[in-house]
């Protein structure tokens, strides 16, 4: 790999943009394709397919064996609510290599003592979220239980097409939330994207167990073939 290719790869990764490095394994010839350039690339069908699956693979094209190395941005977890569950969820997600950010305007909750080593933003979601560049490689979790905080945050998650959106609350609470979000302009499809009650059903009781169930559901959404996670 040329140093300039490596530098470009690192720059794109730092900017949270996907790239595919195409290597002819016989000749060593190599090129980097940015996500934005895929549509106009001669290999666009294969590149788009691998990027969509988030999987690197060897392909054959015009008699050449090419390795398509997909570099998707590091998965990120945005947690709305610096609550007890989040105190367990944040370090767990970090152990799973997620970049984690916790947002809660209530400074009594959003304190560094409660969240050592976790980026913490003590602001309303409307202020905190836009600069974060929330994207399709982001899992989004709303756990304050307070509609004033969770609802606007969820609207932002819909707009940014987060790969996972989960919200704390019983079926009844969630039905009411659906009505409120609809009144705020969300579509039925948006609301159907919310995982609620949040987390896989593993009978979780304690905050740590609920964090395990949320992290398991996020992992399943990220990794399982799409028709198996519904």
């Amino acid at each position: 790999m040329k140093l300039q290719t490596l530098a470009l790869l690192n720059a794109e990764r730092a900017a949270r943009r996907a790239v595919v490095v195409v290597t002819d394994v016989a000749s060593g010839e190599q090129r980097l394709v940015k996500a934005a350039e895929i549509a106009s690339d001669p290999l666009h069908a294969a590149l788009a397919k691998q990027l969509r699956m988030g999987k690197s693979a060897m392909i054959e094209a015009d008699g050449h064996r090419l390795f398509l190395n997909v570099h998707a941005p590091t998965a990120r977890l945005v947690i709305i609510g610096a609550v007890h569950i989040s105190q367990a969820l944040a370090p767990m997600a970090r152990a799973l290599d997620y970049d984690v950010t916790v947002i809660d305007p209530r400074t009594a909750f959003a304190s560094p003592e409660r969240f050592p080593d976790v980026p913490l933003i003590a602001e309303w979601p409307e202020v905190a979220l836009p600069p974060l560049n929330v994207d399709a490689y982001t899992a989004f979790v709303a756990v304050t239980h307070d509609p004033k905080i969770d609802d606007p945050a969820l609207l932002h998650a819909f707009e940014r097409a987060c790969f996972y959106i989960g919200a704390l609350g019983s079926r009844k609470t969630h039905a009411k939330r659906g009505e409120r979000l609809k009144a705020m302009g969300a579509s039925d499809a948006d609301i159907a994207r919310i995982r609620a009650p949040i987390g896989l059903n593993i009978g979780a009781v304690s905050p740590s167990e609920i964090a395990v169930s949320i992290m398991a559901e996020i992992t399943a959404t990220l990794r399982m073939p799409k028709d198996l996670t519904a």
């Binding site: 490596l6 990764r13 730092a14």
Partner: peptide, 30 residues
């Protein structure tokens, strides 16, 4: 902490910048 892919690739660039010879080994088929 485990080394993530981006840390690994950054280390490759840093080592190279420090004047060391660097190789990259990538699983291409399984």
């Amino acid at each position: 902490m485990l080394n993530r892919d981006e840390d690994i690739l950054k280390a490759a660039a840093d080592w190279q910048a420090a004047g060391r010879g660097v190789a990259l080994a990538t699983v291409v088929e399984t």
